[in-house]
Design a protein around this nucleic acid. Structure first.
Lengths: 229, 229
DNA sequence: TCAAAAGTGTTTAGTCTACACCCATGA
DNA sequence: TCATGGGTGTAGACTAAACACTTTTGA
């Protein structure tokens, strides 16, 4: 009898993506300037509609690829927003995803086409609809995530210095960390490989480069731990 | 131009609820026996469709009320499930909510009408669609939630003993706790009021009853903390 | 008088925090 | 030779974990 399946209840389901990147200084978010109605000219998250034959994850991947040109981006479903009038055009529920990418790897041309720009979190403009709320939730989730599974691989270049990693954590958590305590904690996680190479760009002495130990890293990411910073 | 709003992309949006209760012994989940197709006769979570003029939270509250007769139930949105063929009748995305209720306060008659039954987690039957996955995610979320905000108020009677509270945490975390360490940690949270009354039902000596200090409790719940058990 | 559950503190180990000085190098 | 950022260890405070005996009272 297909009880309850009433076509009048059908809704649009959108996916909106909060895309984080790190430029060695600030944690940034990628926003697009809408060149279409409604709210043309305003800033918003990159989004799109769920299509017939895809899952929400598929849709998020598709949307992320469209804007960045990148595949296999680290992402996580965040929350579904459903205020009745959140979208003025039609009843639309939006499932938000947050993603973190290496800021150097995205396709500049694509993001220019979308009128997209990276914003430091502190300087992000007001966004349309409930996108500010989405962004806020994403930041909080990212902070929490940082405590229970290592993050950084996705946001840093392949080789990086301890100070870069520390700056990343400081940017995510929005607080300063003690460099000696930081290095001790990171080392106790046992997920980094110290290279013989040094990066000479930031100081005369030069600082050692590190890489993530992919295997140990993946392991720690699935078998959660608790890192207090 | 309403770009992208293509009616063919509209979907059904369902809400499924994982309802937890505690009977002083086990953590239990309330499941219904479906008396309608598809999968008639099988066990499932209580669910329903999102209606035109309600948010997902509204829908979850409505569904919870329908089954339990209770208002203002503690609940939290969990995750949206979207496998293309998860529902054999029509493309349906389901947003799951978990709720925790005082098992003594629900309406027995209502749940009988739905052929619903409480199951200990260890003994829960196989559920339809992706409901097993929903239940698993809910249990993990509830465990994590336990560490960052006090839980129990919703699951225990107004007055309860320390041992009941400990049993509740043991049931949620599925591990045994040391009673002296437990009592110290709980006291350090400073959210309980120790009453002069004793509960004489469980031992000859009797054990003191406690109540939650509503004000402090609410405060701790919003300003998260970290409780390691 | 004994069985059954309640109540109660201390010691030890581990982890977190705060903190200051020397090093290497290019300008 | 000096200015700049890099690198390194330890002591004290705090928190978590392990652990055993006494109390009460109804049967």
């Amino acid at each position: 009898m297909n009880r309850g399946y009433n076509p009048a209840d059908k809704v649009f389901l959108a996916v909106d993506c909060i895309i984080f990147g790190f430029d060695n200084e600030d944690l940034k978010v990628l926003l697009i300037k809408r060149d279409f109605e409604p709210e043309k000219g305003k800033w918003s998250l990159m989004g799109g509609f769920l299509k017939k034959d895809e899952t929400l994850n598929d849709a998020a991947s598709r949307i992320l690829f469209k804007l960045t040109g990148m595949h296999n981006i680290y992402m996580e479903q965040l929350y579904s927003f459903s205020e009745v009038n959140r979208d003025p055009v039609a009843r639309t529920i939006s499932t938000s995803y947050y993603a973190i990418i290496n800021i150097e790897k995205h396709n500049e041309e694509l993001i220019a086409n979308y009128g997209a720009k990276w914003f430091s979190l502190a300087k992000a403009p007001h966004l349309i609809f409930d996108h500010d709320e989405m962004l806020g939730k994403a930041i909080r989730r990212l902070r929490r995530r940082t405590s229970i599974s290592p993050i950084g691989f996705e946001l840093l270049p392949e080789k990086f210095t301890m100070r870069q990693l520390q700056k990343l954590y400081e940017a995510i958590l929005d607080k300063e960390l003690d460099k000696r305590n930081f290095i001790n904690k990171i080392n106790s996680m046992d997920i980094l490989i110290k290279l013989k190479e040094k990066d000479m760009s930031s100081s005369t002495k030069g600082s050692y480069l590190y890489m993530f130990d992919q295997e140990k890293y993946d392991d720690k990411q699935t078998n959660n731990f608790y890192l207090k910073l």
